[in-house]
Design a protein around this nucleic acid. Sequence first.
DNA 1: CAGCCGGGGTAATACGTATAACTTGACGCG
DNA 2: CGCGTCAAGTTATACGTATTACCCCGGCTG
Lengths: 334, 334
Amino acid sequence: MTRPTSRDVATAAGVSQATVSLVLGDKWPGRVSERTAALVRETATRLGYRPNLAARNLRLGSTRTALLVVPALTNEFFARVYTGAARVAAEHGFGVVLYPSPDGTGPARDPFASARAALDGVIASSMAAHALHAIGGDTLPLVMLDSDPRAAGSAAHVNLAMADGMRQVTQHLLALGHRRFLHLASAVDSWTFDTRAEALTTLLGPGTELRTVRSPLTADDARTAMEAALAAPGGRPTAIVCDDDILAAGACKAARRLGLRVPEDLSVTGFDDLALATAVEPELTTVHLPAERVGEQGMTALLAVLEGTPWTAPDIPVTLVVRDSTGPAPTPAP
Amino acid sequence: MTRPTSRDVATAAGVSQATVSLVLGDKWPGRVSERTAALVRETATRLGYRPNLAARNLRLGSTRTALLVVPALTNEFFARVYTGAARVAAEHGFGVVLYPSPDGTGPARDPFASARAALDGVIASSMAAHALHAIGGDTLPLVMLDSDPRAAGSAAHVNLAMADGMRQVTQHLLALGHRRFLHLASAVDSWTFDTRAEALTTLLGPGTELRTVRSPLTADDARTAMEAALAAPGGRPTAIVCDDDILAAGACKAARRLGLRVPEDLSVTGFDDLALATAVEPELTTVHLPAERVGEQGMTALLAVLEGTPWTAPDIPVTLVVRDSTGPAPTPAP
DNA sequence: CAGCCGGGGTAATACGTATAACTTGACGCG
DNA sequence: CGCGTCAAGTTATACGTATTACCCCGGCTG
């Protein structure tokens, strides 16, 4: 009643276990005759044979499995990163296993144990890098996603052109005449967000004003932050740059609650281009981040590293998608 | 430069490999003295020893790993199912690996191979059941999520009380005076959606009218379907029941494009209670589905099945959350 | 003092696979 | 005719762990 092994197949087919292994591994240029090969294959399927992956992994010393470390899968962005990584992995006979909650709600246990499998390498989002390091994940081949290229030593990097994304946002808003900016920034401490903040600061020239509010990436926080910011003295901002579509949607909603129209009175931009961006009204002007491609390139990079090939690639380009949440700056009425 | 094995630890500590295994496995009631145990542990951490999971799995004949088969992780609902399953799994020393694209874009290969690890059991969403069967996954302990309890033979089931959810929706809308309904139904062929459609049909009494449009679960499809439905002759519906929040959001947007106000002219309800539901305006009246609990119970059920315990549990209750997208039926004006 | 017991450990083994090393006929060629 | 060659397999082994069965020795008991 137990699963058949390669030896069972061998016995049933009247050959040796080695032959079975050779046939099923497609390793028989001239080792096995076509006749016996066919016999072995037929027997294997007849018995419903499936190789024991644990045994194979042990023998080969490699599991063809990568660990993807991300903050939370419920964030559509990371779900898409996973999808991309898993696709490339599958094309190369690899699997991807997740470690989604290093700082989240789950029990913060050893990912290498929770993976329940030996790992060949790790792909880690910078937003979970601290957990990685605390655990000793740096003993495995490592690819970092969206992390500071100057840090992290020898690890391969896959980065989005975040600074350029912010440049596109800024230029778009400046061209529309905006001068008073509010940056709804993520409270998460990460290279990604630092880079954006820095880019925004340097790109806004003289004659402009920038206020920054840091908050967690939830719509509620956006609302609270907005109310405080718009009630502040000294003239309210006309453009709100958000680190995330969720924040942007929250900002739009908060604005309307306060009696402001978007985009007539207030322009709002986001980041990510999630499904949410086109579900809300007005549809969000936002920076499209090709999340799947991040996953794909991350896996590609890891495969290269595993082969010993040095890997490097330019930042993944991002593009501003102009929709309905931005418009000309309002003329300073009464 | 290669990873240390338990034998390396043994040699370094001056004991046998068996002792190392005993100590690290916490299997020493009186087998090993406290002194040597401490020595072994110290040596292990000093060398950075990590047990080879492949070898352990082979030896134990179990990997403590479950496969979760879902349609797509980018659907927030399934991401949350995963999260719940992974949490319970981790509490029991189990891991969860995903097979997310049986009918999606990815290469539809053998999930048991793509998992790259021997599996102890499978948790499968009904929306991917066909793929499971075609592959032979029924040879493993199986838990079905939201599938027909009468089918699938002996497999354990974890179901949401979908019919009751639809009942709450219907009663809510009937109480508001609605009599003309449009059901934006999912085109996916699944017990989940069939149950809802059936419940809706039977719950709507005489004197009511129901039209049904089946479409994929995307906002764009909702829009198209809406335009067709509202332009149809014979009086337009006043209540739109959607199988999904994404559809509902699309329906709201389409309505507004057609010059109809929600909820004054048209009431809209969703299903799932995704983050989207509160991000859009008006916030959606929708049926809250505790997705994490589905994952948790799925994993709990699988653990029970693996222990040979028969498992059964009542349907998971769902609750209608009334927000701003539903209101009294408009009085039939001119 | 012999026997026995139990604490503290070790040697040996099996899990199922992939592959290197070896074997065995049959055959071609000098 | 003898030897190298080659096709077609087979035998043997190692991967790293968990666990069973065994061993040794000091002390207690009768």
